[in-house]
């Protein structure tokens, strides 16, 4: 099989590895502040629908469509984040999950989103280097944050929010920053996703996808940026690798998650633990 054939067969998969790498990074941002939010799939959906409507209905250029999709999910995240981030723990997870359902049902019932049929015939505009550039940009942004006072403050909030406040850290704006930045990344990922899958349907951005995205970050680990990328790649490629298992694929997914949580609680990318193995060997 030559290169062109290979790419024709697997391009969607390769682009998805990149896009879901971005999604895993986007949720790792809120996880790194100790916030369990499950709205990332919905933000991806908003970005995907807004940019797809921009290119199909309004004939806007791809760059502007991507920008609109990103801005759309960013603005919604600001509005939702202000009240919702007053919650913490399970309550925050439930509220963001509820928001995800609201988005899914809106997509299902609005006319402009094509209702249950979704959007079809979205032009194929996403090139491999668009995804690569967006992914590298995301990694750069998150690395800058990690190596600054903001990244340290995120970690401090995760470790002990009260102690962080008593260090003079205004925790609420920082949590909002993490949440909104995560939503922007998800919105951009959604816009890219829409323009290589040709079709969008409301079901793509529901509960199952939200859990998948969380699984990617947990599987890879959130202690460094390689973790979510690794997790995103594994969860995206797994259905292909396990194709023979057919309907038992989801069960295999679940089993892998249980094993990781039990034996690698910090995820696959856990450098201290990996170094420990080499020392022992």
């Amino acid at each position: 099989m030559n290169w062109a054939d290979w790419w024709a067969t697997y391009s969607t998969l390769v682009l998805s590895v990149g896009v879901y790498g971005m999604m895993a990074l986007s949720i790792s941002l809120t996880l790194s502040c100790g916030l369990l939010t499950l709205a990332n799939a919905a933000f991806m959906g908003i970005g995907a629908y807004v940019s797809a409507i921009a290119t199909t209905t309004f004939d806007l250029p791809f760059s502007e469509a991507l920008l609109l999709g990103t801005l759309g999910s960013t603005c919604v995240a600001l509005l939702i984040g202000l009240p919702v981030l007053r919650l913490s723990g399970v309550y925050l997870a439930m509220a963001t999950l509820g928001f995800g359902e609201v988005v899914r049902i809106l997509l299902l019932n609005l006319d402009i989103t094509g209702g249950p049929l979704g959007l079809n015939g979205i032009p194929s505009l996403t090139q491999w280097w668009h995804v690569l550039a967006a992914l590298l940009g995301t990694v750069f942004l998150l690395q800058c944050l990690r190596l600054s006072r903001i990244g340290r403050a995120f970690e401090a909030i995760r470790e002990d929010e009260t102690a962080a406040r008593l260090m003079g850290i205004s925790t609420h704006p920082l949590k909002l920053l993490a949440f909104v930045t995560g939503a922007s990344i998800a919105g951009l990922a959604g816009g890219l996703n829409a323009h290589y899958t040709f079709t969008l349907s409301p079901g793509n951005f529901g509960f199952e996808n939200a859990v998948d995205i969380l699984t990617m970050a947990v599987l890879g680990g959130i202690r460094g940026l390689p973790g979510p990328l690794l997790g995103g790649a594994i969860i995206t490629l797994l259905p292909e690798v396990l194709r023979d298992l057919q309907e038992y694929r989801m069960a295999a997914n679940g089993l892998i998650l249980i094993l990781v949580v039990l034996f690698l609680p910090q995820g696959l990318w856990d450098l201290p633990r990996i170094r420990g193995w080499f020392k022992r060997a």
């Binding site: 006072r149 340290r152 403050a153 970690e155 962080a164 260090m167 003079g168």
Partner: peptide, 8 residues
């Protein structure tokens, strides 16, 4: 360095 947050 978290203690220095507001001074950075």
């Amino acid at each position: 360095m978290v203690g220095m947050h507001t001074h950075l």
